[in-house]
Design a protein around this nucleic acid. Sequence first.
DNA 1: GCAAGGTC
Length: 724
Amino acid sequence: MTSVLGHITTAEFPPEYKKWDYPPPDRLFDAPVNVVVAADKKKVAENIEKQARYVNALCIWTDCDREGEHIGYEICEAARKGNQTLDIKRAKFSNIERAHIINASKNLINLDHKQVNAVASRIELDLRIGYAFTRFLTTSLRTLGGPFQSLLLSYGSCQFPTLGFVVDRYFRVRNFKPEPFWGINVSHKREGIDVNFNWARHRLFDRASVIILYERCLLAKKAKVTKVQEKPTKKWKPLPLTTVELQKMATSFLRMTGQQAMETAEGLYNKGFISYPRTETDRFDPGMNLRALVQKQTQSQAWGDFAQNLVDGGFQQPRQGRNDDKAHPPIHPITFATPSALNDQEKKIYEFVTRRFLACCSEDAKGVATDVDILYGEESFHAHGVVVLEQNYLEVYVYEKWTGSVQLPKFTVGEVFEPTEALMTEGKTAPPNYLTEADLIALMDANGIGTDATMAEHIQKIQERDYVRTVPRTNRASEGANDSEGGQPARGGRGGRPTRGGRGGRGGRGGGTTANGRGGLMEFIPTQLGVALIEGFDRMNFETSLSKPYLRKEMELKMKAICEGRTTKEVVLDESIQQYRHVFMQSQQKLSVLKTHASRAIGNQHSNPTDHPQRRATNPPYSECAQEEGTPIIEESGLVGNTGKEKEETIGLFRKESMPVAFVLANIPIHVSLTLSASTYDSSSHAPRPHRAPNVLSENAPYSTTWGNSYGSWGAVVMLYHSG
DNA sequence: GCAAGGTC
């Protein structure tokens, strides 16, 4: 038994392609690519080769994912060098429970060459495209002089879309035009409790209409209770922990960067305290003995009692997420770590991993929700209250709170009362926030940019290249780009409609996990250089955008097609190289466009980009909806989700009754039928919460329409509102 | 000096 450490080989160009200026970068699209043992893996390869001489069979136990399959192939090749007649098999396993391993040993299979070929294609494409565009960018902009003389301008299939996300959000914030709206807020004091009734119409963008409706309310004087409903409700415990989720939580709550979180987690893994930290799996194998792991935590000062309670009968099997990478279990504590054995960062990550794990093994929080509807004149209003009865998992999972726990006083159906107060309120729509690292990771995840192990690296990379910077989140209210709900009543837990822009942090939604008000939260802002690169590329290449996640997604789909035997490595390489070469030629021809944008960045390289109000008038950003004609009806649009991953995001909030039928986001039309219902997405439970918006249009309205986006995957919840 | 992926 011996081992490797990741890939053994690496792909590289022959030495005659070493220089940056000659042969010209476009030659890298058809230059030979040599696969050689990586410089730091020579000993690993030699070891395999040598060991192979003494045996007649080899069994490969690498991760059972695509990359693991390729590494398995690399091992094969190294071993065959030493022993051509070796009988090579592969074990298929997804955890290291005794029975599972024994079963895998008894059922050895062959390497899957389709998966190997899929990865080989990725490796070759990344190499060719990355080198070609990096050299092209760096050398051709060098002639601009100034800082460009010494800048390294890299292009990568992951780093550029990552930069694209940051730039996109930046302009969505900058170009946001606040719009005033008006509403009616009814409140009533009873049993010492101030009850807020939210207007069923939420808000209208026409002041005169609101005045009329408001006056009708006042004229009616009395409100009538039309519905009172009390029902049990719960807040779901979190899903088992994945790498992406770990990074999102660490960057939001532990004041760490994704990179730091991963390094720390890896340290804990190497010391044997936590399981492997790079996993996409959010479901535990039913065969795993989780109780034993809980038992180990009973000795903790901080959460030992909670763990003991689970051991004493409170234990519940964790929820089963939808993702399984078939290579690793969700991240969980392996053994108890005394706090004194850990440094500060390790303590934070270990505590988080453990609390998350214990939360997964406990029960959902439980409460009672009360809904009261009233009719005031002809207008409907709604009050919602929640009383938390059992905290359960929330006792140990301190990163979440179930707020919005407002107790409503007693109301009876049919009763009539005169509201204490009815006010007409005014506010204006607010821009989204700049991206946080958690938002960025969520976007990368949803769009398939990078892997669990590399996302943080890509984010680091675009900072190293000075394409983006991070700045502490400030309250932008003072800029006047504010805000806000104006006099709108505070929303209860349920009404969490994302009225405030794509609001990546999900702050304020679903109650409780808000990042608001905490110091130290960093936001990503592009530098002038970053903006120039994205702008330049977007303007040079019309049909294929390098700044959007589309191309990476396409590569992902092609890899999948190879794995499923629908195409071959040769076909994919051929197609893709041709496609990229075309984009490359186009970029060469339109170099002047890029140069114009880049030269703007010279001089004030280190200040924030200034306004580019006309940006992409003809080429809307990846996640933004553009109306074909007429005035924009999109008030705000949020992130793009991915139905396959149980991610529903609101991508548009409409406020006109008549909608144009076609929206164009990019080049792939996707046919969807819009259901006219709304839902809020509860980020903590990952559960879509169906929610009929009060004055949503008829559910059967014929709004089947054509949407396009740049990914090929998406999941949208569209909300439609009357404008009155 | 360049990519992205694996790993320590």
